[in-house]
Computed example of a mutant assay.
Amino acid sequence: MFGSQVPSVPVTEIDDETYLLDVREDDEWVAGHAPGAHHLPMMELPARLAEVPTDRDVAVICRSGGRSAQVVGYLLNNGWEQVRNADGGMRQWEAVGRPVVGGDGQPGRVI
Results as ranks from 00 to 15, higher is better:
F2V: 15
F2M: 14
S4F: 14
V6E: 13
V6L: 12
V6T: 12
V6S: 07
P7I: 08
P10T: 13
T12W: 06
T12M: 04
E13R: 14
E13K: 15
D15R: 13
D15S: 14
L20S: 04
R24W: 06
E25V: 03
E25L: 13
D26Y: 04
D26W: 06
E28D: 12
W29E: 04
V30F: 14
V30P: 01
V30K: 12
H33M: 00
A37F: 04
H38Q: 13
H39L: 12
H39C: 09
L45P: 03
A47L: 11
A47Y: 11
A47N: 07
R48W: 02
A50M: 10
A50Q: 13
V52E: 06
P53I: 09
D55T: 07
R56W: 09
V58P: 13
I61S: 01
C62D: 13
G66T: 10
G66N: 14
G66F: 05
R67Y: 05
R67S: 14
S68V: 07
A69T: 03
A69M: 11
A69N: 08
Q70E: 14
Q70Y: 08
V71N: 02
V72Y: 03
L75N: 04
L76M: 12
L76D: 05
L76E: 11
L76V: 08
N77V: 01
G79T: 04
G79R: 06
A86D: 03
G88N: 07
R91V: 10
Q92T: 07
W93I: 06
A95S: 13
R98W: 02
P99I: 05
V101N: 01
G102T: 00
Q106G: 07
Q106A: 14
P107C: 03
G108D: 03
